[in-house]
């Protein structure tokens, strides 16, 4: 169970987040609707986590992913 220590948050902490409905992987989406840059700019206002299977968009509010189905909205709406 040895993990390399890195400054800041371990990548696994972001990688383990899944869609609460289907448990599928989530993609970072910037406010423009496209994928986030390589810097993973998920903190930008309007950034979301998308589940392409459930077609649900989970908001990121003040840098906090809100992974509640009742607060998600359909992608594109």
């Amino acid at each position: 169970m040895n993990h390399p220590t890195s400054p800041g948050i371990d990548p696994w902490l972001r990688e383990i987040l899944r869609c609460p409905q289907c448990k599928g992987e989530l993609s970072d989406v910037s406010p423009g609707g496209g994928p986030a840059g390589s810097d993973g700019a998920v903190d930008a206002a309007g950034a979301e986590l998308h589940c392409e299977t459930c077609l649900l968009a989970y908001p990121i509010e003040n840098g906090v992913p809100v992974l509640l189905i009742e607060l998600a909205h359909p992608i594109g709406a």
Binding site: G8, I16, L17, C19, P20, K23, V64, P65, L68
Partner: peptide, 17 residues
């Protein structure tokens, strides 16, 4: 700081198996 805290409920956890 450094703890990944997200808004989610116990009945539908946002993590993989």
């Amino acid at each position: 700081p450094g703890v990944e805290v997200v808004t989610a409920g116990a009945e539908r956890l946002p993590h993989g198996d």
